[in-house]
Simulated scan of single mutants.
Amino acid sequence: MELTIDTTADATIIRVQAARVDAPVALQFKEEMRRITHARTGRFVLDLAQVEFIDSSGLGAVVASMKQLRSGQTLDLAALQPIVAKVFRLTRMDSIFAIHDEADRAGVKDRS
């Protein structure tokens, strides 16, 4: 499981470089997210554009990543593929996370 990082003025964009976030990689994903978010502050956008499948373990790892954030940190999601978006809708996690169409646009706060 590889996570890459892009930094904008308004957010740290964490890109998941894997087709699946499921039981075999959930623990590694959670630990990598903890390492990244512990070393930085502010807003994080998790780019799931490459992720074609997420199971309950993967969903739990994303939720755990949000719950371990410190005060002043937030986690948004972006670029969900249709099957992944459906999992978030069915579990009502779409009401917990801000979900954006594109990670790069989510990484920029509206300045108007």
Score class of each variant (00 low, 15 high):
Leu69Cys: 13
Lys109Tyr: 10
Leu46Thr: 03
Ala11Gly: 04
Phe53Lys: 01
His100Trp: 06
Asp94Arg: 00
Ile83Met: 10
Glu2Val: 08
Gly42Val: 13
Ala49Ser: 13
Arg34Phe: 10
Ala61Tyr: 12
Pro24Ser: 10
Arg105Trp: 03
Val45Cys: 02
Val25Ile: 15
Arg105Ile: 13
Ala78Cys: 07
Asp110Trp: 07
Gln73His: 13
Leu46Met: 03
Arg35Gly: 07
Pro24Asp: 08
Thr7Phe: 02
Pro82Trp: 03
Asp101Pro: 08
Thr12Glu: 10
Gly72Trp: 14
Gly72Glu: 14
Asp101Thr: 10
Gln68Gly: 14
Gln17Arg: 14
Thr74Gly: 12
Gln28Thr: 13
Ala18Ile: 09
Leu3Cys: 08
Ala106Ser: 05
Leu3Pro: 09
Ile13Gly: 02
Met33Lys: 05
Thr4His: 06
Phe44Ser: 03
Val84Met: 01
Arg70Ser: 15
Ala64Leu: 13
Glu102His: 08
Thr74Tyr: 07
Thr91Pro: 00
Val87Phe: 07
Ser71Lys: 15
Thr41Ala: 14
Arg111Glu: 13
Leu3Tyr: 07
Asp101Arg: 04
Asp55Val: 09
Asp76Gly: 09
Thr74Trp: 05
Ala78Val: 05
Asp94Asn: 03
Gly58Leu: 04
Lys109Gly: 07
Phe88Arg: 00
Gly72Asn: 14
Asp94Pro: 00
His38Arg: 12
Arg70His: 15
Leu3Phe: 08
Ser56Arg: 04
Met1Glu: 06
Val63Cys: 02
Ala19Ile: 02
Thr7Glu: 14
Lys109Ala: 14
Met66Phe: 11
Ser56Pro: 08
Leu27Tyr: 06
His100Lys: 02
Gln73Ala: 11
Glu102Lys: 10
Thr74Asn: 11
Arg34Thr: 15
Asp110Thr: 13
Lys109Met: 12
Lys109Thr: 13
Ser95Pro: 00
Arg43Pro: 03
